[in-house]
Design a protein around this nucleic acid. Structure first.
Lengths: 203, 203
DNA sequence: TTGACAACCAAGCGCTTGCTTGTTTTTATG
DNA sequence: CATAAAAACAAGCAAGCGCTTGGTTGTCAA
């Protein structure tokens, strides 16, 4: 189950507070979306794993789509806070970039939850209107931290690419790791971050 | 419609020949999978766009899943052939890598078809057994070309990473371009390939 | 012209889907 | 203990799903 969603007291989202019961539903839903994808997961699947009947879900969420949106919003917010926290107090931009990459990789590969995975893989399952809300939320903290860090490296002339391009290339490279990196493989997250670092950052 | 699938005479797949009628169905199916995703596309949608009734689909394919598989197999084979053709006659490994990247980007971004996009995005919609078949097909030509090229660069000491890691990082970086690169944007495919090239290849 | 086969139509079957409704149980509060 | 709100149940509806069946049309070689 996704730990970030299973904790009992979550920070209030723009959507309103998340009760323990809601958090439990979100956690098992994320697991199922990860295992089977959004469309192949039924509300009955979610309810069963949450220990209730399917109809009872709609006491907490007004639709299946709202479950996906709420989960994604919570993930986005958590990742934003983690990114800000990771770079806090780190002065050199190279170290900050390393911290951001490790934070992103940790979110993708954490053993106890696949919320970041779902955020990428089920993006197309989210309604157009909801997508805009997530993007706005993401841009406020998460992308801002990345932009600031890469721009700082850029003005120092230590990036091999334009900062905007570098961001997209790095994001893709890190995101793809979910398809080939194994927990028990020879490469851990920090090592992968270092690999990317030495590729994109010169000196 | 996807051009590679719309042409009337296709090379025979391991599955058997593809008639013009089948090719038309595959082409519109790929378009729909791209637009809505596999699960949200119904056999009625496919049939309507192909100009037939839904039941008639099953004269050509025994299931919706077989449509997806056949389309992916055809794409994989076409990409493999394109990769081999792109590196043929190119002696220096740097030039070969550039050619491979442009081939991959072209497949992803071609205006007249989204088969390569679907191959990545709907991978999880493919049955487990079918996945193995595609992977085998892919490994025969496509990945082989990449491996040979990167290994050649590696032994020359011109890669900043281990060739295996470089392959995965580059693949992710290129695949992600479908989410941010615009046809009418400032960056064309060759320029993006050059950006990646100067990042991963030294000297 | 005829026979054979491929392509397609027309209709619908059996099942699953997200969600609703009305009722009952649980929980928290005075 | 009384009461109200929150949470869950029980049952099922309407719509949509992949796919099947049986018959009709089109094509082309013999």
């Amino acid at each position: 189950m996704s730990e970030a969603l299973a904790t009992t007291d979550l920070p209030s989202l723009p959507l309103g507070p998340i009760s323990p019961a809601k958090a439990r539903i979100l956690a098992v839903a994320v697991d199922l979306f990860y295992e089977r994808g959004y469309e192949r997961t039924t509300v009955r699947d979610i309810a069963e794993r949450a220990g209730i009947l399917s109809g009872s879900l709609f006491h907490h969420f007004k639709s299946k789509q709202e479950i996906l949106f709420t989960a994604m919003a919570a993930t986005t917010q958590a990742m934003g806070e983690a990114a800000v926290a990771a770079t806090e107090g780190v002065d050199d931009p190279r170290g900050a970039l390393r911290a951001l990459m490790i934070a992103e990789l940790s979110a993708i590969h954490r053993e106890d939850g696949h919320a970041a995975y779902v955020l990428v893989d089920e993006w197309r399952s989210l309604d157009t209107e909801h997508r805009a809300a997530i993007l706005k939320l993401r841009d406020g903290a998460y992308e801002r931290a990345w932009r600031d860090t890469l721009d700082a490296l850029g003005v120092k002339g230590r990036l091999r690419n334009n900062p905007r391009i570098a961001r997209q290339l790095i994001r893709g490279a890190l995101a793809w790791s979910r398809h080939w990196m194994r927990e028990d493989g020879p490469l851990d997250l920090a090592s992968l971050a270092d690999e990317v670092l030495k590729t994109f950052v010169s000196d």
